[in-house]
């Protein structure tokens, strides 16, 4: 083997070994982040789930129409799965739910809510615990905003009616209500299909 090749191989070995040791050391050296602790309930013991009534009245239809088509989140295999009367229905032979027929049922809306808040259950609770501040850490916002890879691309805009409605919902206290401006944004967002 030539001198050049021998030196090149030795240099490659040194670089690979050093990189491996550095990565291994870095992975062991992180400091626990207290902000990452799991939060199950508010300090007063209250729930930190976002409000279901507001979700049902204002948010669910937006997500049904903009996310719940069969080729996107209207599929049973998706981590975030959306039922809707115009898309995927709950499989219930007795109820005979069929795509395109009837209204979205209360059960389907409830399942949509559970699916959404279960995408990142802990992160969602953290956002609710800080009254909706910095909601874009949630991937159900960052993905449709196009901030991270989303096969359906950027489907909502920051500051747009869908974004404003969803973030207002996350900021609303449990049992609370949305303000008039947020309600207006939600109504506009529900006209987008």
């Amino acid at each position: 083997m030539s001198v050049f090749a021998s030196r090149a191989l030795r240099a490659l070995f040194v670089v690979a070994t050093t990189s491996t040791v550095a990565v291994a050391a870095a992975s062991c050296a992180s400091v626990p982040d207290v902000d990452r602790l799991t939060i199950f309930a508010a300090e007063d013991g209250g729930s930190l789930e976002p409000d279901y009534k507001i979700y049902r009245a204002e948010v669910d239809l937006i997500l049904q129409q903009q996310c719940g088509t069969f080729d996107c989140h209207g599929q049973p295999g998706r981590a975030y799965r959306v039922y809707s009367s115009r898309g995927l229905r709950v499989f219930n032979p007795e109820a005979g739910l069929r795509s395109g027929l009837g209204e979205t049922t209360e059960d389907e809306v409830r399942y949509n809510f559970q699916s959404l808040i279960s995408v990142q259950p802990e992160e969602t609770r953290r956002v609710v615990a800080r009254n909706g501040q910095n909601p874009d850490v949630l991937i159900f916002l960052s993905k449709p905003l196009g901030a991270e890879r989303h096969k359906g691309g950027a489907v909502i805009g920051k500051g747009g009616p869908s974004y404003e409605c969803i973030t207002a919902w996350l900021a609303a206290p449990l049992g609370g209500q949305l303000g008039p401006n947020a309600l207006k944004q939600c109504a506009t967002a529900r006209t987008i299909r």
Binding site: R86, L88, P93, E94, S99
Partner: peptide
């Protein structure tokens, strides 16, 4: 459908 009747749409297709 469950009763054997032909249906236009199902729970997972229009």
């Amino acid at each position: 459908a469950a009763d054997g009747k032909a249906v236009v749409a199902s729970f997972d297709t229009p």
